[in-house]
């Protein structure tokens, strides 16, 4: 298949999916119970004020016109203002943006650790298939793979942050290790900022990446055992190539393909697990904000967050498609 053609097809699908997500997002929040205009206003507002707000939010227009306005506003990154989330009436973008960095940091660090460790462990287990090391690695991963993320996160929170008090209980930054009265975050030096952030992020990343790691390891191992039974691996061994050469030059290249696909498909799960971890560790990111928005029934905020999360997953999928093009020998020029 042609590389360009493949990518073009993917892009068209991406555009269609994006439109479908926008539509879903629009419809979901139109069937929500309650009048958005009333949620926006203080109790006991007069009839005229309510009408004015409704007109301003295009609520009096037919659905098609509302949809048109919704699309236009989204393209302009105008997500309206929050109705409940304090302080009410803030631009949604201003609330979301600072938290975006925290979330991306957590996902990025967690995913990199999970992918590297998972692939390495899977490779380790596959090469020693059937040996004690393999059995041990498999039991270990099966345990973490099936343990619900929120229970793992809770256990880590209780032991390491609660009982032992080695790590901070909440937040994305602020505390410093071995310092009882840390300065304000904005007053810290760059080094202190980095230390503070790593101190806070350590436990959430551990909780988040352990399960992902187990997942990736299982797939890596299964995919590698598939490849290692192929004839060309026997040939490679018979040629007298070393273990390392067989692995790196022959086995890994083909075994990586399904792993990339699975990592791409797992993005929906990644986001879900990340939200749970954020909520339990009170880590100020998008996930925790989603939670706060649900608790407050703040629909404009929730609508924007859902869109951001969905688009995030979509972008991750697109990236993995592009990576796929470069590592799959069948898709080439």
């Amino acid at each position: 298949m042609n590389k360009r053609k493949f990518l073009a097809k993917k892009m068209v699908f991406l555009a269609i999916t994006l439109f479908a997500i926008l539509t879903t997002n629009f419809i979901l929040f139109r069937v929500m119970p309650g009048d958005p205009a009333l949620a926006f206003l203080p109790k006991g507002a007069s009839e005229e004020v309510i009408d004015m707000v409704r007109e301003d939010m295009h609520l009096n227009d037919p659905l098609s016109v509302q949809f048109y306005h919704y699309i236009i506003d989204t393209i302009k990154l105008d997500f309206s203002v929050t109705t409940v989330y304090p302080p009410a009436g803030t631009e949604v973008v201003d609330i979301v943006m600072p938290r975006m960095f925290n979330t991306l940091l957590l996902i990025g660090v967690g995913l990199i650790i999970a992918i590297m460790a998972g692939v390495w462990l899977g490779r380790f287990a596959a090469w020693r298939r059937g040996e004690a090391a393999d059995t041990f690695a498999m039991t270990f991963t099966l345990l973490f793979y099936t343990m619900p993320t929120f229970i793992l996160a809770l256990a880590l929170l209780i032991f390491f942050c609660g009982n032992l008090d080695w790590f901070p209980l909440q937040g994305a930054y602020g505390e410093l290790p071995f310092v009882s009265n840390p300065p304000r975050y904005s007053d810290m030096s760059l080094l202190e900022k980095i230390v503070s952030r790593s101190y806070h992020i350590a436990m959430p990343v551990l909780a988040f990446s352990l399960q992902m790691m187990a997942d990736f390891m299982l797939i890596m191992r299964n995919s590698l055992t598939d490849v290692l039974t192929e004839d060309y691996i026997v040939t490679a061994k018979a040629k007298g190539l070393s273990h390392r050469q067989v692995m790196n030059d022959h086995a890994m290249k083909n075994a990586m393909l399904p792993v990339v696909t699975v990592i791409a498909l797992a993005m929906g799960w990644v986001v879900g697990g990340e939200i749970m971890v954020e909520i339990i560790f009170s880590y100020e990111g998008i996930g925790q904000l989603t939670w706060a928005a649900v608790e407050a029934r703040d629909y404009p905020l929730l609508q924007a967050l859902f869109l951001i999360l969905a688009v995030g997953v979509l972008i991750a999928n697109m990236i993995s498609d592009i990576v796929y093009v470069y590592i799959d020998p069948r898709v080439s020029l």
Binding site: A20, M32, V271, T290, V294, L309
Partner: peptide, 22 residues
């Protein structure tokens, strides 16, 4: 299959939160 892929892309946790509220 495009419909299925679309469902796979939707982030399920926020979707569930929203569906349960609706």
């Amino acid at each position: 299959m495009r419909f299925t892929d679309y469902f796979l892309v939707l982030p399920w946790f926020p979707l569930m939160i929203i569906l349960m509220t609706v």
